[in-house]
Amino acid sequence: MKVIFLKDVKGKGKKGEIKNVPDGYARNFLFKKGLAIEATPANLKELE
């Protein structure tokens, strides 16, 4: 799953980066803790 990092996550990504991460990791950790959001076309446009 492609995500946009909202905060730095040690060993995974830095704020503003767009990366592919495992689906479970994104849903169960990154999204729940507010560390990242899904890289949807709308979210990507908002980032620019």
Rank of each mutant, 00 (worst) to 15 (best):
38 E>A: 11
30 L>M: 03
36 A>P: 00
18 I>V: 12
47 L>R: 06
25 Y>P: 05
48 E>F: 12
1 M>G: 03
42 A>I: 10
11 G>M: 05
14 K>T: 10
2 K>M: 15
21 V>H: 02
35 L>F: 13
11 G>K: 05
26 A>N: 02
48 E>L: 14
6 L>T: 08
14 K>Y: 12
46 E>N: 12
14 K>I: 09
2 K>H: 09
37 I>H: 04
27 R>D: 04
24 G>A: 14
1 M>E: 02
43 N>I: 11
8 D>L: 05
15 K>W: 04
45 K>V: 11
8 D>Q: 04
30 L>P: 02
31 F>G: 01
41 P>D: 14
43 N>S: 10
2 K>E: 11
11 G>R: 05
41 P>Y: 12
44 L>F: 07
19 K>L: 10
29 F>N: 08
3 V>W: 01
31 F>S: 02
25 Y>I: 07
41 P>H: 10
10 K>E: 12
3 V>G: 00
39 A>V: 06
2 K>P: 09
3 V>Y: 01
5 F>T: 00
34 G>S: 05
18 I>E: 04
39 A>W: 11
44 L>Y: 05
2 K>I: 14
46 E>D: 14
24 G>Q: 13
11 G>V: 01
32 K>A: 11
3 V>M: 02
22 P>R: 10
40 T>L: 07
26 A>F: 13
26 A>G: 04
3 V>D: 00
1 M>D: 03
28 N>W: 11
14 K>P: 01
45 K>D: 10
43 N>H: 09
21 V>Q: 05
37 I>Q: 08
40 T>S: 11
26 A>T: 07
37 I>N: 02
47 L>W: 15
11 G>P: 04
7 K>V: 14
36 A>R: 00
42 A>E: 11
12 K>I: 15
32 K>M: 11
6 L>S: 02
39 A>F: 10
22 P>K: 10
47 L>T: 09
11 G>L: 05
43 N>T: 10
33 K>P: 02
32 K>Y: 07
34 G>H: 07
36 A>I: 06
24 G>T: 13
20 N>H: 14
42 A>H: 12
37 I>T: 07
37 I>S: 04
13 G>K: 01
33 K>R: 14
17 E>F: 03
1 M>W: 05
3 V>A: 01
31 F>Y: 04
11 G>S: 07
7 K>Q: 13
39 A>N: 03
